[in-house]
Amino acid sequence: MHSHGGTLGTFTLIALTVAGAVYIAGTAGQRRRGHTAWPLARTVSWIAGLLAVAAVLVGPLGHAGGHDLTTHVLGHVVIGMVAPVLLVLGSPVTLARRTLEPVPLQRLGRLGRNPLTRALAFPVVAAVLAVGGSWLLYTGTTAADSTRDPALHSVVMIGFLLAGLLLTAGVVGVSAGIRRSPRWLRVSVAVLSTAVLCVEAALMDTAGVPGIPADQVRSASAALWIGAVLYAVALGVVVAGERGRDERAARDERAARDVQTAGPAREARPTPDTPVASDPAR
């Protein structure tokens, strides 16, 4: 754990551990609830995503990222691009819909219908937050400050994580009542976001980053554009396979309705709003 471990590091580890434990608890007993067994690949993806977050916030990338721009950018790529893809592919919303009791299930549905949630999940808005935040960071003095202030470094990385989750969910497509944007829009957002990040990396290389030694900037800019391209490829692969996931989602939805009407105990459980888009990893 790095220098600013203390309370922040402990809280981070506890939060990530709880997220992993709750997810695994939700996957257990799916057959007992009348569902098909939860896919192991989704569980592996979720746990890997949590480990990626831990590596950046309380692990070696977090420690080095607080002192070196190249490692800082690598942390950005891992927590803002790699971790969001892994976490979204873990299908936590689908797991929650299959596991939660009626009252929290209804609250989840209301959250999905909330105008703010819909706005943040819109791909264009999510891209502006994710890419705009990166641009402001590396063209201003905040990047240099965050390589010297461990607490600020953690705040910046958490911001990348949240923005990356929004962008990934917006491009891949989300459920819980949030309408999935047209494929052409989502693909366009992914392509344009990648282009902007590559331009940003080129500007970093040519103009430098305020307060950062020049010898650190070249490798940092290379890490940014490589990470952006790989992130776009990963999103493209997931979007390309969404038809098959939609078909599986429809089968799961029918099976869930059958389970809910199979007996008296299930009859009391309200059916959640049928999502207009499948969970990304279905």
Rank of each mutant, 00 (worst) to 15 (best):
V199Q: 04
V239H: 06
A176W: 02
R31M: 03
G208H: 03
L87V: 08
P84E: 15
G132W: 12
W46S: 01
V82H: 13
E253A: 07
T71S: 06
G208E: 10
A96S: 13
M1R: 12
L57Q: 05
L197A: 10
L100F: 03
G65H: 05
G62S: 11
T117C: 01
L235C: 05
V238I: 15
T271P: 05
S221L: 14
G132Q: 15
V196C: 14
L230N: 01
V22R: 09
A55H: 06
L108D: 09
T194Y: 12
A126L: 04
R254G: 06
Y23G: 01
V172F: 15
L116A: 14
M1L: 08
G34V: 09
L105E: 05
V128D: 02
G49L: 12
Y23I: 00
R42W: 01
S154D: 04
F160S: 09
S219Y: 04
V276Q: 08
L13Y: 07
G80N: 01
T17M: 10
M81K: 08
V88Y: 09
A37L: 11
R118Q: 06
S134Y: 11
G236H: 14
A220H: 07
V229K: 09
H2Y: 01
L13W: 04
R179E: 09
A201N: 02
A228V: 11
A52E: 14
A64G: 05
V155E: 11
D246P: 05
A256H: 00
V156S: 00
G6H: 15
A240D: 14
A190R: 00
E242Y: 09
A249K: 04
T43E: 02
A130M: 06
H35M: 09
G9C: 07
G26Q: 06
T261Q: 10
G164R: 01
A190H: 01
P115V: 12
V229A: 14
T142S: 03
I47S: 04
E101M: 04
D149T: 06
F11S: 02
V88K: 05
V103Y: 13
A126H: 12
I24Y: 01
L89T: 08
T10W: 11
D145H: 15
V233Y: 06
V44W: 02
P270E: 05
P264V: 09
R33S: 02
G227A: 06
P213C: 10
T7W: 00
L165S: 00
E247F: 04
R107D: 07
A126Q: 06
V171I: 15
M1P: 10
E200K: 00
L137I: 00
L108V: 15
V172R: 08
I178S: 11
Y23N: 00
W225A: 03
V209L: 07
T194R: 07
L95Y: 09
V172P: 09
V237G: 10
L136N: 09
P213Y: 14
R269W: 03
W46H: 03
V237S: 07
A130G: 01
L51P: 04
H72Q: 13
E267P: 08
V156W: 00
I47Q: 15
